[in-house]
């Protein structure tokens, strides 16, 4: 269990983290969502003891990171954004080094390394130089490193950045697998990724927690305002009123007008699926829909929608 209370971190005069508090329970997968520079990495660095906070308190399984760093760190496996890999070592040598650092007893060291390699599917590259591995493999070696010593909490900072789509899928699967046995905190700036994996999401922006909720609730909240982009063969005036009249549609905005085609941005409540009603409304006035696209909400949208008062 991780308890973070009132965490503040200054870099000079700049406040990177201002008063974050949250608790992670055993077995949870916590997504840490926020745009770049929001303070995700700083928070994680502080939790893992790489940085110390300007003020605030962090305990891991009851051990204070500042006061009992060794006991606290024993319970954490950390993969920073740039995996801490020695390129001049082979995978096995590297994991052996990490397990020595983590003071894994000598007799179970070998077995544990083999188990971990099996878990993250890198057994086939154990004898290869990390320098010669692909980005995806390197990331997995990085995760293997966090698993050595069998810590309860695993903290992953942007584990999917820079991976190709297939690797991203594999990585997500891996994290899901790990979540069965570990408490996981991982950060991302991609909403869908967090939605796909996490039980719970904490959104931070400008060093502050903007939202802290189970994923399902957050999804609902985010879907509270959905954007669609429609390309219609009509004029804006002709479609504006009929669309507004559709229940659930909040606003209609003209985005583009060209060669008798218009592109309209339509914002609707997430609670109701307006797509069908919109289709019929347009059909009634004989406006053909050439393109109908739902827009993924941007992080900015999420922040505005979350912070805007609930309807």
């Amino acid at each position: 269990m991780i308890e973070v209370s009132n965490l503040v971190k200054f870099y000079g005069d700049k406040k990177a983290v201002s008063g974050i508090s949250f608790t992670v329970n055993q077995g949870e997968i916590l997504g840490f969502l926020g745009p770049n520079g929001a303070g995700k990495t700083t928070t994680m660095n502080i939790i893992t003891g790489f940085l110390s906070a300007t003020s605030g308190r962090i305990t891991i399984n009851g051990y204070d990171v500042l006061e009992q760093p060794e006991m606290a760190k024993k319970n954490i496996g950390y993969l920073p954004e740039q995996p801490p890999l020695f390129l001049d070592m082979t995978v096995y040598e590297y994991l052996e080094y990490v397990s020595e650092l983590k003071k894994v007893p000598k007799d179970i060291r070998k077995k544990q390394i083999t188990d971990v390699m099996k878990m993250v599917h890198i057994g086939n590259v154990s004898g290869r130089l990390i320098h010669n591995l692909s980005k995806g493999y390197r990331q997995r070696v990085g995760i293997a490193q966090t698993l050595i010593g069998n810590p309860e909490v695993i903290i992953l900072d942007e584990p999917t950045v820079g991976l190709d789509p297939n690797q991203v899928i594999e990585m997500r699967k891996l994290i899901c697998d790990l979540s069965k046995t570990h408490t996981i905190i991982f950060s991302s700036h991609i909403l869908s990724e967090v939605q796909a994996i996490c039980d719970r999401v904490i959104i931070i922006n400008n060093g502050k927690i903007v939202a802290d909720a189970p994923t399902m609730e957050l999804s609902a909240r985010v879907e509270g305002s959905v954007h669609y982009s429609l390309t219609l063969e009509s004029s804006f005036n002709a479609v504006q009123m009929p669309l507004r009249a559709v229940p659930g549609v909040r606003s209609v905005t003209l985005m583009q007008e060209k060669d008798g085609l218009i592109q309209v941005d339509l914002m609707a409540d997430g609670d109701l699926d307006v797509r069908k009603s919109v289709f019929f409304a347009l059909a009634r006035i004989n406006v053909p829909i050439l393109e109908y696209r739902s827009l993924a909400p941007s992080l900015e949208d999420i922040f505005t929608s979350i912070t805007s008062p609930r309807k």
Binding site: I20, S21, A211
Partner: peptide, 12 residues
């Protein structure tokens, strides 16, 4: 329990 816990961060 669909109340989102919003935290208003108090300034130190």
């Amino acid at each position: 329990d669909n109340i989102i816990r919003e935290r208003v961060v108090k300034a130190p």
